[in-house]
Design a protein around this nucleic acid. Structure first.
Length: 879
RNA sequence: GGGUGUGUAGCUCAGGUGGUUAGAGCGCUACGUUGACAUCGUAGAGGUCACAAGUUCGAGUCUUGUCACUCCCACCA
């Protein structure tokens, strides 16, 4: 028995527990059916579920549940990411509360603390995913720092190194001074700010009173200047090329070089060159073989190569300006709009710094990763995202993979006493190689750097399935079927998975990549903590249930567009669930029981034939849309069928049957209603797994659980639905007349149909009862030819004929005239359209014959109807 | 500067291959306690599909241009 009210909180968690405990999410490895697999984009172990996850994981769960019901062997592989920077920061923050830093503990102790933290506080998000209904196989949950996945990391690292695709280099990298580590280009965000532009001058060597004028936003970097560049095309300044100038304060002699980097239009036309602290200057330095002077410490304070050792960049900037002013070299300071790089995680200004780092030769790995997208082995959905992918991959830079952190995969690199590098999976091997190399036992020191988190994430598609071991899961589920993720992650993750997989597996990691947009607030604003417009999905689930949130995500997911969150809309889908709940209660109350030997294609009554056909139409539409990843179309089809067809019409049409006497019809309708409800539960299950399961289990002795129920294969009976469609149309028309004439809903009317076709007339005997019931009529009859239309009959055009309602003297003629005139207006407007087209000779000549014929038919019908309305108007003209 | 999208009802958005009177949810108006449901029902109002030109018998849909906005990449002189 169903409770009166739909209350998702009462059953959602319980149902999930039942699935998980019964192993319903595990693939049946004994089955020989087709495999379907998805690896979850691993959330950070520190993370909490946000609306972006809710969207991403709902879409995945829909695909997973749908494919499971198709009878495939389905694996949704879950897990979390160790999230190097994020996790280290969380634990360090906790330590800071006790006034200690990680350095007080030492590396080993600190890492132990991180593992402790993970054991106690990590993985909240996995619990939240369960609450959302995600049917992942949790027994296979993985973590990027697991033993197995770490082995995969070591193996692929060594392989890449030995293939020359990983190398160490001293390069200018993005340096996060707060964390004291290198970060990748992608972890840097550019922010626009209003800063200052400083203008000052350097004296020219040996030419008293001659200066070269410089403009910069960072005067304090002048201590790293090793040249000034001027374009050779700069008419005003090119005479200075080849001379030297004197770097003030430190009085270093530096050359003035010719380089096109110096744009004559910008600034003063002369650029100070600081090769060790600017990416462009670095290139200039290389071209002119300039020395590099590093002026910063790891924490971005100035170092011993400057007069302001120990000062931060801001203070040093102030001091530099003061000093230049003292020397009379400062000229002016202007406000200047500029873009400054910040660390994505730490929010501090990123400094380009010369350091030893490790790089992956991404341009080489990109070749294969590009090829398999170009030739369609991996397809983006929507396709347009491949442009984004191509654009980035074709311009890819070497990927800096070393991080000066503690939490992460420590690189399998050992250095010999003279710095020779030994790269092996385990220390013993490296030791053996080293001993052989040196011809004696030597002491090795291990590289302290760890790998960028995305390095291990890049292996996710195969490392989670057991690689490097040969496993049944790897054989069965690799390549995975589809990857579902946001467009913001294409570079970070999709591209890297493609490169790593093509390198190691020689096969794509996934055959399709479905890309969705961002979840925004209801006015399309990006959600952010600082704006205070974030919404916690757990609270939404608490209020409306997981099913409502999931359905919302599906219904709003149209390919390639962002999803705007809307509380009222989520409430609407909660209402939809309530509606279904009540429909199920209706079925229950009317003893609509699932009948084992019921054959929907054998039903006799027009109403039942109609709903079976409509159910099949809806099913095939949902199937098609899901196959095409058209989530919103799929969801809307189910919604429309449940509410607009089943509840609004079928249930209403079944009432006169249930309250009537015909036992045979009652029995058939009960069985049909139960069958349709089951069908609804099946096709709705991927979207709303909880309520559908709850209602499914309300029927005793089910042969299968809904989660494993078979997705229907459509056998169209091609049943004629026109009779019921006609009745529905008729009922709607009568209701509309009733409303516009302000007739009380309770008044039972007589209705006549005039000038109807033979087909329509043939429908009437069967449809009479339901029309009378739903339109609240006393009787409905054919208006015989030759009968006189009386003045107190209101009339309205219905298809090829007229609906007449005698009102026995209560007609409000003014209202009736108004209503008829409105009908007339509509007809005239349509007629104009038809006439315009048909009077156009080239339309008649060139448009397809069926289009022209249809237009003619409409015109003829409209003309006839117009005549009838005019006649009716004339009849009551003066009343 | 390079690239990518978007502009349709009061709001948020659908409208694969051009073809009836352009749809949905929410909101709004009127009526309604009809034996599943007021988290509801019935009926209704509301749109020059950003603008301009073009292709076509026919354009919300295709082409070009204009305007406005979004996002991504690059850019610290």
């Amino acid at each position: 028995m169903l409770e009166k009210n739909y209350n998702p909180k009462d059953f959602e968690e319980e149902i999930y527990k039942n699935w998980e405990e019964n192993g319903d999410f595990k693939p049946d490895m004994r089955s020989d059916s087709e495999a379907f697999s998805i690896v979850i984009p691993p959330p950070n172990v520190t993370g909490y579920l946000h609306m972006g996850h809710a969207l991403d994981d709902t879409l995945q769960d829909i695909l997973v549940r749908y494919n499971r019901m198709l009878g495939k062997k389905v694996l949704w592989q879950p897990g979390t990411d160790h999230a190097g920077i994020a996790t280290q920061m969380v634990v360090e923050r906790n330590l800071a509360k006790e006034g200690i830093t990680r350095h007080d503990l030492g590396r080993e102790k600190f890492i132990e603390m991180v593992w402790n933290w993970k054991a106690h506080s990590g993985g909240t998000i996995c619990k939240q995913l369960r609450r959302l209904g995600a049917s992942c196989d949790w027994s296979r949950e993985r973590f990027t720092m697991d033993e197995g996945l770490s082995r995969a990391v070591l193996k692929i690292f060594v392989s890449l190194y030995k293939d020359g695709l990983i190398y160490k280099a001293k390069k200018l990298v993005n340096w996060d001074p707060k964390l004291a580590t290198a970060v990748s280009d992608l972890e840097v965000v550019q922010k626009e700010i209003v800063g200052k532009m400083y203008y000052y001058k350097y004296p020219i060597e040996g030419e008293k009173g001659e200066f070269i004028h410089i403009a910069t936003t960072r005067p304090e970097t002048m201590f790293g200047d090793t040249a000034v560049a001027v374009s050779k095309d700069n008419e005003k300044l090119k005479h200075l090329i080849g001379k030297n100038c004197i770097l003030p304060i430190v009085n270093r002699i530096i050359p003035i070089v010719a380089d096109d980097h110096a744009d004559p239009e910008k600034g003063t036309g002369a650029v100070k060159i600081t090769p060790a602290h600017d990416f462009n200057d670095f290139e200039v330095g290389r071209r002119h073989n300039l020395p590099m002077i590093n002026i910063l410490n790891e924490d971005a304070t100035l170092n011993e190569n400057t007069p302001f050792e120990g000062l931060g960049t801001q203070e040093a900037r102030q001091k530099t300006i003061e000093k230049l002013e003292e020397l009379g070299l400062m000229e002016k300071i202007e406000d200047h709009q500029m873009v400054i790089p910040y660390g994505e995680r730490t929010g501090v200004v990123i400094e380009p710094l010369m350091t030893d780092q490790w790089f992956v030769d991404a341009p080489k790995l990109a070749i294969e990763a590009l090829r398999v997208v170009e030739n369609g082995q991996m397809q983006f959905v929507p396709k347009s995202y491949e442009k984004t992918y191509f654009e980035w991959m074709r311009n890819i830079q070497p990927w800096c993979i070393s991080r000066q952190l503690w939490w992460g995969h420590q690189m399998p690199i050992w250095y010999g006493p003279d710095g020779t590098i030994f790269c092996e999976e385990i220390e013993q091997q490296a030791q053996a190689k080293a001993d052989e190399h040196y011809g004696k036992k030597v002491k090795l020191t291990r590289e302290t750097d760890v790998l960028d988190t995305w390095f291990s994430s890049g292996l996710w598609a195969f490392s989670t399935l057991g690689w490097p071991d040969k496993t049944e899961f790897l054989d069965t589920f690799y390549p995975t079927s589809v990857l579902v993720t946001g467009f913001d992650i294409i570079f970070f993750w999709v591209a890297r998975m493609m490169m790593m997989s093509m390198y190691m597996m020689k096969r794509v990691p996934f055959k399709k990549c479905y890309i969705h947009g961002l979840v925004r607030d209801e006015h399309g604003q990006k959600m952010s903590k600082s704006k205070g417009n974030t919404v916690d999905p757990m609270e939404t689930i608490e209020t409306y249930g997981a099913d409502a949130l999931r359905f919302f995500m599906a219904a709003m997911e149209t390919q390639g567009r962002d999803v705007n969150l809307s509380d009222s809309r989520i409430a609407g889908y909660r209402n939809f669930a309530t509606k279904l709940w009540n429909a199920a209660r209706f079925c229950e109350m009317n003893e609509c029981k699932y009948a084992k030997d019921f054959n929907p294609y054998d039903v006799k009554s027009a109403v039942n034939k109609w709903i079976v056909e409509k159910a099949n139409q809806a099913t095939s539409e949902v199937t098609k849309n899901l196959n095409d990843y058209r989530f919103s179309d799929a969801a809307n089809t189910v919604y429309q069928f449940v509410w607009g067809t089943f509840c609004d019409w079928y249930i209403e049409l079944s009432k006169p049957i249930f309250y009537g006497e015909d036992a045979e019809q009652i029995a058939e309708t009960r069985a049909t209603a139960a069958w349709v409800l089951d069908r609804i539960l099946i096709i709705l299950h991927p979207f709303m797994p909880f309520i559908t399961t709850k209602l499914w289990d309300n029927t005793e002795n089910r042969e299968v659980k809904l989660i494993h129920a078979k997705w229907p294969e459509i056998k169209s009976a091609d049943d004629d639905t026109q009779q019921i469609d006609w009745a529905i149309d008729l009922i709607s028309n009568i209701r509309s007349m009733r409303a516009s004439m302000n007739l009380p809903a309770t008044a039972k009317l007589d209705v006549y149909l005039k000038d109807m076709s033979q087909t329509s007339i043939s429908y009437l005997p069967q449809m009479e009862k339901i029309v009378c019931s739903l339109a609240r009529l006393e009787k409905i009859e054919v208006f015989e030819n030759g009968q006189e239309i009386s003045k107190d009959m209101v009339q309205s055009v219905f298809r090829e004929g007229l609906i007449l309602i005698p009102l026995k003297g209560v007609v409000n003629f003014a209202a009736e005239r108004e209503r008829l005139n409105k009908e007339l207006d509509t007809l005239n407007r349509n007629l104009q359209g038809y006439e315009r087209k048909l009077s156009n000779a080239s339309f008649v000549e060139r448009a397809p014959a069926n289009v022209v014929a249809e237009e003619k038919r409409r015109q003829a019908e409209a003309l006839e109807n117009k005549a009838k309305i005019i006649e009716a108007l004339n009849r009551i003209k003066y009343l």
